Computed example of a mutant assay.
Amino acid sequence: MAAGLGVLAPSSAAAGRRVHPGDSIQDAVNYARPGDTITVMPGTYYENVLITKRLTLRGYGARTVIRPPVTAVTPVAPVAPPATGASAQAPAAKPPATPATPATSATPATPATSGRALACSQADTGICVMGTAEQPVVDVDIHSLTVSGFKRNGIWASYTDRLSVQRVISEKNGTWGIAQERSTRGLFRDNTARDNAESGLFIANTVDREGGATDTLGAVVRRNTLTGNRIGVTVRRVRNLSVYGNNLTGNCGGIFVVGDEGEPGAGDMTIRNNRIHENNKFCKGNSRLPDIQGVGIVLTGAEETVIRSNDIRGNVGASPLSGGILLFKSFVGATNTDNVIRDNVVRDNKPADLANQGTGTGNQFVNNRCASSVPAGMC
């Protein structure tokens, strides 16, 4: 009976729940126990999803699509399921005449979860993973889903540890495709982020205030495909992570490493073995940045970052940021210091393959295969 209602009964070994078209993903999340796996069957689901506990949410890739609800609905706070028996199953949402939106729980939200739910709904984001400073959400796994067309973000995470986002398609969202702040040890692998208004993949210390860079404790951005975004990957005011094996093409800019005058500085990261070709889409500038076009890798206000063994070709534009690999003078006075750029293939980028601007010290350009540099002599 439980399977017929769209939710599988938890077993003693591994609890699992299954959501079918017409059911509510949020209901399944609310009633899941920590550690449960929720499988979202192929279909289109019109809702925002809020996750505040350890669980796995997985679908069938391009066949499982989460889109904005028809009318704005605040995701409800998680509730504790009954301990045993058939009553432990979540009531299934009946197939509606219009696309499904999250069901409403009769259980009142706590102030903390209510605030997180409201923030997620107001941001109009597809999937939110929201912890708190006192209690980060640990070991959430989002796997093989498509999140499309939200006004803000496809996936947004705050106060998480060991968040894993793999084989997700995040497309045509109004800000970021996949984004994380105030979090540690994130893994972002084999995702596709395309045609998002800002960064396809965005990792920051925090988005609502200035401050020194935070330690991600080894976050990994690996083997993602990023195309048609304003910027492929942005890492802002963070330290200790790796960006490798990604394919970036058709964005306005490839990879941005952004710091400011805060302490500690941004950096202490590795950017390697990425393919960064023809990111020549034009994006109009704003109050923070000039126009963006033809940008491979930009460092601004970064320190102790290693850029090696990347293939960077055909990034061409007339922006102050254009070119293959650019150490850019910071708008807020932060310098690029002690960075190493080595063993890269940097070809056919204009106005230059390599450029070192500003007054930073200790930056090394070693054994790069390139044709032009500013100042001359770095190839």
Rank of each mutant, 00 (worst) to 15 (best):
M1R: 10
G6A: 05
G6L: 02
P10L: 01
S12E: 10
Q26P: 09
P34L: 04
I38V: 10
V40Y: 02
V40T: 08
M41Y: 03
Y45R: 05
V49R: 00
L55I: 00
L57D: 02
A72F: 08
A77M: 06
P78V: 10
P82Y: 05
A88Q: 09
P95W: 00
P96E: 04
A97N: 13
A97Y: 12
P102H: 04
P102G: 09
A112V: 14
T113H: 15
G115I: 04
G115A: 15
A117T: 05
L118S: 11
T125H: 03
M130H: 15
S144T: 06
T146P: 02
I155Q: 07
D161A: 12
L163G: 08
S164Y: 02
S164C: 07
I169V: 13
S170N: 09
S170H: 06
K172Q: 15
I178G: 11
S183T: 05
R185V: 03
R185G: 06
R189Q: 11
L201Y: 05
A204C: 08
N205W: 05
V207E: 13
R209H: 12
E210L: 12
L217T: 11
V221E: 14
R222F: 14
N224L: 02
T227D: 15
V238I: 09
N247H: 15
G254N: 00
V258F: 03
G259F: 01
D260C: 04
G262K: 00
E263T: 11
P264Q: 01
D268S: 14
D268A: 12
T270F: 07
T270L: 15
R272K: 14
I276H: 02
N280R: 05
K281H: 11
G285I: 00
G285Q: 01
A302L: 09
E304I: 08
T305M: 00
N315G: 09
S322G: 03
K329S: 14
D338W: 06
V340M: 08
V340W: 07
D343K: 11
D343F: 14
D353I: 06
L354K: 06
N356P: 01
T359I: 04
N363T: 04
N368S: 10
C370Q: 07
S372R: 08
S373M: 00
V374T: 13
G377E: 01
